[in-house]
Design a binder for these strands. Structure first.
Length: 414
DNA sequence: TGTGCCGGGAT
DNA sequence: ATCCCGGCACA
C-alpha cells in the first residue's frame, strides 16, 4: 500500500544529488578535524556516494513518514529541547523496549555481494529499530562491513526529531541497489503496537488504538480524544510479530539482553540509526556526537562474546576514538554490558583495515604524490666495496659497526 | 635483485 | 648512546 508509493517516491529522489556538506555539516566538521589521521583511510568515492544516498534516504524517510503518519506539528521550534528529551527517552526506551533482535541472514540481498569483497556497502540504512549510526562521512571505513539488513522493522519508540519509520529499512536499502525486494516475511507478520509508557506496556493491535490509549490514559486528553498532535507517536512502539524463527526471540516484549541478539555469525545484529538521530540530522551532543560523527555508514554491531573487539578502543590511525573501525564503546545494560563496535575481527570478508593495508594505502598515496627527485638530500651512494661486500653476510661480525647497523660504512669510506 | 644507508624506533 | 631494522634509492 503506502510502501509502494514511498519506494517510488524515494527512488525518484535518489536520482537527485544533494551536497554532502549540505546534508552533513557535522560529519564534515569531523572530517576536517580528523583529516590528517584519515589520510590512510581514504574511502573510495563510490562508497561516499552510497553513504550520501543512504542518508538522503534517511531524510526522505522522515519526510515521507511525516507526510503520512505523523502530524507535522512540533518539527522545528522544539527540536532543540526535544533533543535533550530524546536522550532521556532513549535511555528509558533501552530499559523498557525490546531493542535488539537478530536479523535474518539474507544472502540474496544486494548488499551481501559488496561486503564479500572486502569492499563496503554503507548500509547505514540499518534495520529499523535500533542503534546504528549510519553517519555519512569519509570516515566510513571501507572494510567495516555492513551486516545484512533485516526486514522486520521495529520501533521501540519514536522521537519528535525522527518521526519516521514509514518505510521498511530493508526495502530502503534495496532501493539503493535496485534489488528486488523479498517480501515474503511481511506476510507472516502481525503488527502490534505496544505502549512504552513506563509501567504500562499495553499492547494493542492498531495504531489508532494505541494512540488513543496514550492520549487518554497517559496524556490525559480525555475530552479531545480524537485529536492527535502526534505526541502519542513517541510513546508507543510498533511491534511486528512474525512466525519466523528469527523473530521468535523478539516476540517477547520484555527487554532483550543484547547477548541474545546474535544468532550465529556472520549474522549480525544491527542497531538502528533511527532510534537515535542519524547523522543526517542534529544529535544530542553528549549521547550521539562521538558516534554519529565517527561511525559513518557503519552499523554498529552488538558485541557479546564473539568475534568482535571489545573495549578498550583500538587505536587505529585514521580513526577517532569512537570511529567504527577504530573503536568501540560500551553501554551498560541491565545485565551484561553491551559493546558496540565497528571492528569485526574475524569474518574473512569483513575484517578491519589492518596495519598492512593502511601501509599500502599510505604507500599508494606516496606514489601518487609529489614527483620525487625534486630535492634529494640523500648523499650519493658510495662506489667502493663496503664491509658487506668484502666480508659477506656470513662474516657480519667483521663488519664495521656502521655497516652492522646499516649505516654509512666507516671502514671503507669513499 | 642486491646493496648502501637514511630515518627512526627500541632499549 | 647503542643497537636494530624498515624501506628507499641506486647499481
Amino acid at each position: 500500500m503506502t510502501f509502494t508509493f514511498q519506494q517510488e517516491d524515494l527512488k525518484r529522489d535518489f536520482s537527485k544529488k544533494i551536497s554532502y556538506q549540505q546534508l552533513f555539516p557535522l560529519a564534515m566538521a569531523e572530517d576536517v578535524r580528523t583529516a590528517d589521521t584519515k589520510k590512510a583511510h581514504r574511502v573510495p568515492e563510490h562508497e561516499k556516494e552510497n553513504t550520501r544516498s543512504i542518508c538522503l534516504l534517511e531524510q526522505k524517510r522522515k519526510v515521507v513518514s511525516s507526510n503520512i503518519d505523523v502530524p507535522p506539528a512540533r518539527k522545528s521550534s522544539e527540536e532543540l529541547d526535544m533533543d535533550k528529551v530524546t536522550a532521556a527517552m532513549v535511555l528509558t526506551s533501552l530499559s523498557t523496549s525490546p531493542l535488539v533482535r537478530s536479523p535474518p541472514v539474507r544472502p540474496n540481498e544486494g548488499l551481501s555481494g559488496s561486503w564479500k569483497e572486502g569492499g563496503f556497502v554503507p548500509s547505514s540504512t540499518s534495520s529499523s529499530g535500533y542503534w546504528s549510526w549510519s553517519a555519512p562521512s569519509d570516515q566510513s571505513n571501507p572494510s567495516t562491513p555492513s551486516p545484512p539488513l533485516s526486514a522486520d522493522s521495529f520501533k521501540p519508540f519514536r522521537t519528535p526529531a525522527q518521526p519516521d519509520d514509514g518505510i521498511d529499512e530493508t526495502e530502503a536499502s534495496n532501493l539503493l541497489f535496485d534489488e528486488p525486494i523479498p517480501r515474503k516475511r511481511k506476510n507472516s507478520m502481525k503488527v502490534m503496537f505496544k505502549c512504552l509508557w513506563k509501567n504500562c506496556g499495553k499492547v494493542l493491535s492498531t495504531a489508532a488504538g494505541i494512540q488513543k490509549h496514550i492520549r487518554t490514559i497517559h496524556l490525559g486528553r480525555i475530552g479531545d480524544s480524537d485529536y492527535s498532535d502526534g505526541e502519542e507517536d513517541f510513546y508507543y512502539t510498533e511491534i511486528k510479530l512474525n512466525t519466523d524463527s528469527v523473530a521468535d526471540g523478539l516476540s517477547n516484549l520484555s527487554p532483550v539482553s543484547p547477548s541474545q541478539s546474535l544468532v550465529s555469525p556472520p549474522t549480525f545484529s544491527t542497531l538502528d540509526s533511527s532510534r537515535t538521530e542519524t547523522p543526517c540530522a542534529k544529535t544530542e551532543p553528549k549521547l550521539m556526537t562521538p558516534l554519529s560523527q565517527s561511525a559513518p555508514t557503519t552499523l554498529y554491531l552488538v558485541h557479546t562474546d564473539h568475534a568482535y573487539q571489545a573495549t578498550p578502543p583500538v587505536n587505529i590511525p585514521g580513526s577517532t576514538k569512537f570511529s567504527p573501525n577504530g573503536s568501540s564503546f560500551s553501554i551498560s545494560w541491565q545485565s551484561p554490558p553491551v559493546t558496540f563496535t565497528g571492528i569485526p575481527v574475524s569474518p574473512t570478508h569483513n575484517r578491519p583495515v589492518g596495519i598492512g593495508e593502511q601501509r599500502q594505502q599510505q604507500n599508494h598515496s606516496v606514489l601518487s604524490s609529489p614527483p620525487r627527485g625534486a630535492v634529494s638530500l640523500r648523499k650519493p651512494r658510495g662506489e667502493g666495496k663496503k664491509c658487506r661486500k668484502v666480508y659477506g653476510m656470513e662474516n657480519r661480525d667483521m663488519w664495521c659497526t656502521a655497516c652492522r647497523w646499516k649505516k654509512a660504512c666507516q671502514r671503507f669510506i669513499d
